[in-house]
Structures are given as C-alpha cells and as structure tokens.
Design a protein around this nucleic acid. Structure first.
Length: 256
DNA sequence: ATGGTGGCCCGGCCA
C-alpha cells in the first residue's frame, strides 16, 4: 500500500498538477493539506473519476485537509472530534485499507513570540492527547502531514539561519518528540537516513534550485506500520515545472 | 540587503 502526504498550497490552483501526479505515482492513500477550499468546492467528482474516494475538512480561504483513498474510507472524523474547539480546519481522520490515517496541517507558528506559536504548541499537545484518548499504539496508525517542524538539524539546509525562528525551536521539537513517544516512528527515516533531504522550499530567491529547504512533511507510523515500510521517498519532481506547490509529496510503501 | 514569490482575492494577510 502506497501512502503519500502533500501540502498542495491551494487545491484549486493545484488540481491539474495533483491529477497528473496521481496518474504518475498511483498512490493508494493521499493526505492533502492546505486545500484552501470550502467543503462544497472540493473536487470529489474529479477524484472519483480517477478511482479515489475522498473526504475533506475545509473552511474556505485558509487551511483545509483531505484524504483520498482507493482502498476504502471508513469512520471519517473532522479535527479532534466532538467538542473540538479548534477554529481552523487542520486535522482529518479516516480508516483506509485497515490503517487509521490522519491528514494533519500543524499551525505554522510564525515566530517564537507570536500567539500563533503558542497555538502551535497547544495544537501539538492536543494531537498527542487525542492519540492517547482515541488510538491504540499497538495498532496500525499513521499521522501524515505538514508538521511545520524540522525534526533535527539534518532536516534544515542551514540550521544557523533558523536559530531563534520557528520550525526548529526546542519546544516544537520536544512537542513532536512527545507525540512520537506515544508510539510513532518517522517512517521516512527508516529508508532514507542521510541529511539534506527536504520536502519544502520557499518560492523566493530560487531556494529550490539552491537546495535550500527543510524536511517538515512527515509520515509518522506506529511500529506495526513501521515494520511494513519497504520504500520511502520525497517526490522532488512535483516541486519542478509549472505552478508547483512549495512542498513536495512524501511517499512511503507498505508491504501487505 | 529586512529583499524575494505565490496563494488567497483585490488590500493586505499568510506561508
């Protein structure tokens, strides 16, 4: 089973690229972030025509997450579920092919002294608590998405430049580590251990071509998932060419 | 050097 996550930075702007990519990569499950669509504008029929069922949790101009699957979609859940007070559409769960899967768009944080940084840390703590309350670390669970955190300095083109900035700060990395301590593994690293592999590059200043990026898009899986990982890659081709997202998809393959 | 690009949708905000 091939699982991918991709922050598309507007599905309206990116739909032709996404359709082309689906045909090329043939994933079984895709977690999308930053669809920037209301639920009524989500192109479910276009995906259905390509063989994918889909669920979407959107709000309109900002955020928005989706899951596409050609191995079934069961028990969808928006956000943190009933009683959720998150004002933004950043989390969506569904069971696909026997795996409980979340598409997550972690808040950016903006800067260490910004209210959005506090929101980011609180959101990560809520995600951890949701796992504790609702999921089984002994089961097959995947949390995939744009975490807006580079887990280590190996995941940043120039760590010195990001000292004092969001995405690499100790509290963010600690919050991610606490989520992983619940029972999740950074599955990409099981197959791709080297430094300098990135999933996001700023549109500005030719950063992609200068290889100046960060690995902030992650596929976290429980041990039962990690034991099945046969292949992992970041699809840099999707960052090239006309009207790319500023993120590239992360892809993992699971043995049956 | 406090720049640069690209999404929202048309004046700034967000990444």
């Amino acid at each position: 089973m091939r699982i991918a996550t991709w922050n598309v930075n507007s599905l309206k702007a990116r739909l032709p690229r996404v359709e082309e990519w689906l045909a090329d990569v043939a994933p079984d499950v895709v977690c999308l972030q930053e669809t920037k669509l209301a639920d009524g504008a989500f192109p479910s029929l276009a995906f259905q025509g390509l063989g994918y069922e889909s669920v979407h949790h959107g709000e309109g101009r900002w955020n928005g997450v989706a899951i596409l699957s050609r191995v079934g979609i069961e028990d969808p859940l928006n956000g943190f579920g009933p009683g959720d007070d998150d004002p933004e559409a950043r989390l969506l769960w569904a069971t696909c092919g026997g795996v409980r899967i979340a598409s997550a768009y972690v808040p950016n944080g903006r800067s260490l002294d910004d209210d959005h940084y506090t929101y980011k840390l609180g959101w990560l703590a809520k995600l951890r608590q949701h796992l504790v309350d609702h999921e089984d670390p002994a089961g097959s669970v995947v949390v995939a998405g744009d975490f807006n955190i580079a887990p280590t300095d190996d995941d940043v083109w120039n760590p010195a430049q990001f000292v004092g900035a969001t995405h690499t700060s100790e509290p963010e990395r600690a919050a991610l580590a606490e989520i992983e301590a619940w029972g999740l593994v950074d599955t990409f690293r099981l197959r791709q251990p080297e430094a300098g592999l990135y999933s996001w590059w700023d549109y500005r200043a030719g950063n992609f071509h200068k290889k100046q990026g960060m690995r902030i898009d992650l596929v976290l899986g429980t041990q039962a998932v990690a034991d099945r990982v046969t292949f992992a890659t970041i699809d840099r081709n999707a960052r090239k060419g006309q009207q790319p997202s500023d993120h590239a998809p992360v892809i993992i393959d699971l043995a049956p």
